[in-house]
């Protein structure tokens, strides 16, 4: 057994050593919502292991523009894992092979020289493709509009001790609130269900005192909106939790079901 320092050195070398690679990208191209899509194959040379996945598409797009072609349309904004825009299905997994990582934070050291990488948009009836890898995820906005808020102005941030919140609830609420609404849960679910997203929004407020007055009406109207938008139903396969870049727990869905069942019989209206 090598000593700890030798092992640590080996790990650093193994994971962090810089290398260049040549890749083949198979990317879904679709001109607009109604057009027939197809895969296009692009060889990409000299990709640095230190690039992010989005930078590789930037690199390819530069070349496509120079060649007078149409650059690949893809969503992105913060490029630091907090906005949830960079949604794409990479080699059969939302946001690519790394656990708890968004596409923008996926580094190319996840791949080897010679790899073929298949890139597809989210596939769900409720998320129609607008162009290439860009899908219309406004259904999520409408879900939040259906009840994912507190109706009164809660004013400025108050003193930390002014409203007592149980620490476990605060932690669980905070964990649920870390959802970035990227839609990976819908993309991975065999039923294209938005239950994990919805449950994150419902739990986030249901666990805090400010969320209590509208707790029942919120869950009822948000679930109704989910069905209206054409998302499927949850059958607890667990795929959503496994691919969520923010590791939102599937137990939130059970909490939402409990609130829903309870609200169904006890709601005021």
């Amino acid at each position: 057994m090598p000593s700890a320092t030798v092992r640590a050195g080996w790990c650093v070398r193994f994971y962090m050593e810089h290398y260049n690679m040549n890749l083949t990208l198979k990317v879904w191209r679709q001109d607009n919502k109604n057009a027939q899509g197809r895969f296009e194959t692009y060889p990409v040379k000299d990709v640095s292991s230190e690039m992010s996945f989005l930078e590789v598409i930037d690199l390819l797009n530069d070349r496509l523009v120079k060649e007078g072609g149409d650059p690949i349309a893809f969503d992105h904004d913060c490029r630091e894992g907090i906005c949830g825009m960079c949604s794409m299905y990479i080699n059969g997994r939302p946001h690519g092979p790394w656990h708890a990582t968004t596409t923008c934070q996926l580094h190319m050291r996840a791949f080897k020289d010679g790899d073929t990488v298949v890139v597809e948009p989210w596939r769900a009836q409720a998320f129609p493709v607008i162009k290439d890898l860009v899908t219309d995820r406004s259904a999520f906005d409408r879900l939040v509009q259906a009840g994912g808020f507190v109706s009164v102005n809660t004013g400025n941030a108050v003193d930390g001790n002014a409203i007592p919140v149980n620490k476990d609830n605060a932690d669980a609420s905070f964990a649920a609130a870390s959802c970035i609404a990227c839609g990976a849960c819908v993309a991975a679910c065999k039923n294209a269900s938005a239950s994990l997203f919805l449950a994150a929004k419902v739990s986030h407020l249901a666990l805090l005192p400010q969320g209590q007055p509208e707790r029942k009406s919120r869950v009822l109207s948000m679930v109704a909106q989910m069905d209206k938008e054409g998302f499927g139903s949850c059958t607890f396969t667990g795929a959503c939790e496994a691919v969520c870049p923010k590791e939102i727990s599937i137990t939130n869905i059970s909490r939402m079901h409990k609130d829903y069942l309870f609200a169904g019989v006890a709601a005021d209206k």
Partner: peptide, 28 residues
Amino acid sequence: QLEIQNRKRRGTAYSVGLGNRGSKWYSR
């Protein structure tokens, strides 16, 4: 009913699927 409704929700199929990386085959 559940099976039929849920099957319609995907639309276009993925060319590379998630498979067993996220869920058990029997759950699906």
